[in-house]
């Protein structure tokens, strides 16, 4: 388990270094995904399989997809085809693919071996997490749902394009503080 832990940590740290030093946002996002997958493998070696699953599904799945959407939207327009052709070069995806392949080999080796057992590690199963989450931490779950609702409403309000709906709904305002309006 130690070798797996250190290998996953090294991959995560190397991918993070590459992510914060890239100049192209898409390259950085690929390395960021590899970094999150590496941290997920670290979670698995620490006996926290539920956190590892959540890391892959929510972080590498949902949050990074939001980043990719925004990067694509900001690059809309000029020379988009040339950029996409450049992104398909092997030099762009070889590094993240190599690191992801190393992580894949590692997780296959981990799953083929016995369950994670370590001298200083006490594995925490998903059953314990769920029982605690909906037991003493129920109020925190409700507060998190309120936070997510506030994030949803805020993102919708910020992302709305006011230039397209001047059909009287905004005419009642004093004007000037509606987001999205050009200066």
């Amino acid at each position: 388990m130690d070798a797996a832990f250190f290998a996953a940590s090294a991959i995560a740290l190397a991918a993070t270094v590459m992510a914060i030093t890239r100049t192209d946002a898409v390259h950085a996002l690929l390395y960021f995904i590899v970094s999150l997958l590496g941290v997920a493998v670290v979670f698995y070696t620490l006996g926290a399989s539920f956190a590892a699953v959540l890391e892959v599904i929510i972080y590498a799945g949902a949050i990074v997809v939001l980043f990719v959407f925004v990067v694509m939207m900001l690059n809309l327009g000029r020379e988009a085809a040339a950029r996409e052709r450049g992104w398909l070069r092997p030099a762009m995806w070889a590094g993240p693919s190599l690191l992801a392949l190393l992580l894949f080999v590692e997780i296959v080796a981990l799953l083929a071996a016995a369950a994670p057992s370590h001298a200083g590690i006490h594995a925490v199963e998903a059953r314990q997490v769920g029982a605690a989450l909906f037991g003493p931490y129920l109020l925190a779950v409700e507060l998190a749902s309120m936070l997510l609702l506030a994030g949803l409403v805020g993102a919708y309000h910020l992302g709305r394009d006011d230039r397209n709906d001047r059909d009287g709904r905004n005419s009642g305002r004093a004007g000037g503080h509606a987001p999205g309006r050009l200066p």
Binding site: I58, I63, L66, F69, L148, A150, G151, A155, H157
Partner: peptide
């Protein structure tokens, strides 16, 4: 928290 923060931040 990260999901809420990233949605508002990207907006």
């Amino acid at each position: 928290l990260a999901a809420a923060e990233v949605s508002v931040g990207l907006g």
